[in-house]
Design a protein around this nucleic acid. Structure first.
Lengths: 336, 336
DNA sequence: GCGCGTTACTAACGCGAGTTAGTCGCTTCT
DNA sequence: AGAAGCGACTAACTCGCGTTAGTAACGCGC
């Protein structure tokens, strides 16, 4: 204990916690700081947590399956955002990857190892989560979950999808297909389809359910979806694929069908994964601000823990990145 | 405290820590377990850490820059491996992303918030790391760092590269180019080049420094490297690209040059990122066991913390995944 | 009836901080 | 001169648990 090199012990605590209200003379203050440095003194985390009643740690629960995590090109970036924001707020991040039916993360909270939780990819049937939220634990949802009364942070999937499709419409396309990023049970997938429909409605283009095909996370599903779409709706001149990875498979299907992108068919993706700019052709897509998403979740939790007001729902804006997979429609079947 | 519902307090501690040596009668044991369940009792993590002298938490330090993290398709999977292995050992994982010149992770260890550290992507000039290791802290390196006397876990880059090139040689190729995954200052890049040379040497193919071009993490660098290689060495019939992402750019360069894969040029990648099987053509590559890598690092640290013997250096085997980007050489210039 | 060994527990200390309620010495007011 | 006030600290309590040493009850042998 640095008390030796200086004077007391309580005083050390005051200095290290920057308690300016406790009237410590500048001389003593400096003396203690120096002693602490010389002795390489560092307060013991656990003791501090015990005495202070706060662990200064937040938990990040990954509710995706191992396969989904492996396939998620943006997860690491999101984690980075959470962690850096947490750090500026004086918190550390404990990561708890938990496959869907693999319960029991409440222990983290209940044992006071973390002060709050960010739950990424929450599922509707998560009873444990609902119970925790009902008990008033500080929890931030990263993703959408309508029925759970906890603050959530997400990107604006609907607006993003709408922007993507409006871009297509602006290029003169009228028959626009849509391949989802995941089964529609996933809210993110449903929201993106909603955005697609918004854009069509605004442009007064009739909605055709036959133009929507479900994808499922990976490129193989995109390939299958696109193949079926090309077969079913031959007059499609553009496709909105709600995931770059799925779009990658779709591009291949188009190539295999002997059509060209963007000459014959325009394609817009979603996510802007690092590889998207290198697709053939470079993919026009909607940038998902992964880092900012993590940071927003981190900030929301830190704010909440500090007792500051938190908005119930934060929707992050996306950005249209125009590259070379989209071009003006050449055969305007639906023109005025 | 559950003492109320049962009898004592020390006894509760014994039961919850499964101290069978302390002679607790089966009746009392059961009574306490029930009471704990009914009261929803959970020991306080910080108190436990303070009293027990161990935080039961390990730190995972990410020493890559934010950009590298974002571009690393396998990082999340590795993290998953670390975390799941840690959990089976009774540990939690604290993640500390730290850009290269952004020091000060020793605080984690020194303040006892973690019992040990896994350092991913260590750099040679990391003085803090060297000091920590010298002080005897439990640290596992994930990656290679010859001069630091800490146990390390890595994949066998050299053997993997060798396997890749041997596959090419087996197909009859003799003029084989090599594009690195990163600048040669990175040991992983140097190791993979070493594996490339091993394979050539074994097959008694002369080494030509002109066939090696440096890539740098992303597809753009692969594109540039391949373009220059095609221009400089027109007789190359195969290329070993030490990273799938870089290979993606290389494939595009080959296409742009009017050559076909694998008809004119065979390509082998490295990493087996999820998208590799969907490349055009599906990429033959070396699978990097990301999950296993994380798990091995986690296990090594847990073992070390438990006082069990740990091997100084663990090299995980890779696996050749043959897909459609490689084919037999057609113009055997160097044949017997 | 006493010593001795078991069995089944419990009182009390200590981990290393944060925090409350003082204490001490010195001015300033009345 | 005595009370009150203030600046600069510190003794001692608290957090919730692990752990060591110790105790009470009970049986057993002689």
């Amino acid at each position: 204990m640095a008390a030796r090199a200086g004077v007391s012990r309580t005083t050390v605590s005051f200095v290290l916690n920057a308690r300016t209200d406790a009237g410590i003379s500048p001389g003593t203050w400096r003396r203690i700081e120096e002693a602490a440095r010389e002795l390489g003194y560092h307060p013991h985390g656990a003791a501090r947590a015990l005495a202070g009643g706060a662990s200064h740690t937040i938990g990040l629960v990954l509710r995706q399956s191992a396969e989904q995590v492996a396939a998620d090109a943006l997860l690491a970036e999101t984690l980075w955002g959470v962690a850096s924001e947490a750090r500026t707020g004086g918190y550390r991040v404990l990561v708890e990857p938990l496959s869907p039916n693999d319960g029991r993360y409440s222990e983290l909270l209940v044992s006071q190892r973390v002060d709050g939780l960010i739950v990424s990819g929450p599922r509707v049937d998560d009873e444990e989560l609902a119970a925790l939220v009902a008990d008033g634990f500080p929890i931030i949802l990263q993703g959408s979950l309508p029925d759970v009364p906890a603050p959530s942070v997400d990107i604006d999937n609907r607006a993003g999808a709408r922007t993507a499709v409006e871009h297509l419409i602006g290029l003169g396309h009228r028959r626009i297909g849509c391949i989802t990023n995941a089964p529609l049970a996933y809210t993110a997938a449903a929201d993106r389809v909603a955005g697609y429909r918004d854009a069509l409605a605004k442009a007064e283009i009739g909605f055709d359910a036959g133009l929507i095909v479900e994808g499922a996370f990976d490129a193989a599903s995109g390939h299958a979806a696109m193949t079926s779409l090309l077969a079913e709706a031959k007059d499609v001149t553009a496709v909105f694929v709600a995931s770059d990875i799925v779009a990658f498979g779709a591009l291949r299907a188009i190539r295999e069908a002997g059509r060209r992108v963007p000459t014959d068919i325009s394609v817009v993706g979603f996510d802007d994964i690092p590889l998207a700019r290198h697709f053939d052709p470079p993919l026009t897509t909607i940038r998902l601000p992964a880092n900012a998403l993590g940071a927003a979740a981190g900030r929301a939790l830190v704010d909440r823990l500090a007792g500051r007001p938190t908005s119930e729902r934060t929707l992050l804006p996306t950005e249209l990145i125009v590259r070379e997979s989209t071009a003006a429609c050449r055969n305007r079947t639906g023109g005025p």
